[in-house]
Design a protein around this nucleic acid. Sequence first.
DNA 1: TTCATTTTGTACCATTTCGCATAAAATGTT
DNA 2: AACATTTTATGCGAAATGGTACAAAATGAA
Lengths: 202, 202
Amino acid sequence: MNEKKRGRPRAFDARETLEKAREVFWDRGYAGTSLDTLSAATKLNRPSLYGAFGDKEALYLDVMEGYRAESMDALADALDPSFPLRDNLARVYDSALAVYLHGETAARGCFLIGTATAEAIQHERVRDLLSRSLEDFDGAIERRIALAVERGELPEGTDAGMLARLASAVMHSLAVRARAGDSREMLEALAKSGVDMICGRA
Amino acid sequence: MNEKKRGRPRAFDARETLEKAREVFWDRGYAGTSLDTLSAATKLNRPSLYGAFGDKEALYLDVMEGYRAESMDALADALDPSFPLRDNLARVYDSALAVYLHGETAARGCFLIGTATAEAIQHERVRDLLSRSLEDFDGAIERRIALAVERGELPEGTDAGMLARLASAVMHSLAVRARAGDSREMLEALAKSGVDMICGRA
DNA sequence: TTCATTTTGTACCATTTCGCATAAAATGTT
DNA sequence: AACATTTTATGCGAAATGGTACAAAATGAA
């Protein structure tokens, strides 16, 4: 790859453009974001946006997929099995909160839970990608928890699948509460309680 | 009240209109719903909508408040302290799922988490009402859990506030997952695990 | 009956929205 | 240098959007 293309070269970087678009969608939602707003934020005019990403829904799906991939990378880092499960989970929630509490006017929470859920009924592809994202997240935690059971970090007979979904449930709640304006202290306390719930009080 | 008013009587019932508007907002989100759609669904023309409820944001806030109030009523019923806490929580999740799994094209999840979170950044009044709704919900569960600790249903020294927020977290997750298309079986299993998590496996 | 008051329905308005047509600009190819 | 190809920029246009003006209709009050 990286062969020189024929025509006029692009004056923008696709990754940077998707990041700018993500900021806008994150604050205003999918339906609440116009192409003009996207055009202003990315400094691309609409025909360039169309040429590079297709219509608004395709652009949004691109942004969703980027967020999903980044989140899974961060999750994989946080779940490094050379550390105890308790540390892993604390780091999962910590790194999520670092993202959720960022924002210009107010904390933005999770991009997917904050914006994709609203579109999930009307846009089947959004719903499917959202569903897959949640499943992937659950799956990664489930595998780490299953390992913890093997290692004796958690009692034998633990249902790794359901315990993982409970761990994800705490994440979902952090996502919603952050966007509703809960304080960092409250969210950190909930995260800590979540860790205790999964790993035990000890 | 109920005094006869002076002018031409209304040809519609405000409660029914708000219910129709809720259906539309629930499926399409706030920004994704146009006044024409609302007008068609409620069978009121736009000037009547404005006269009765104010602009689109005011109408949405009315719908939010109605949903919040109904939810709190249902929650109070479910938390009837003459039943064990375990039964209470199971009923809380059951009645929530009955609402969340309803929908024409797809399960709609929770109205607030599914639609209000998206607007929470841009619309401060939506964010505040969302925040208050979550707090009220947490508070009602916390009071029931505190009672359970007094009664010895839960171990002494239990942090009722945090345990209640974990119980709410399971609700939030049910809300998100339902809208993402999870099956009823999966959601019921998660609810059951949530009850076990709060009340113990016994 | 006449008037005041409120709701209804039609029509309208300014703006925004999405999408595209078209031409100019910037590159590689021959 | 001439051409093919791709991106950029301007701008158009049809439709949708939120909101309102205004007159007709329906009621109670005087």
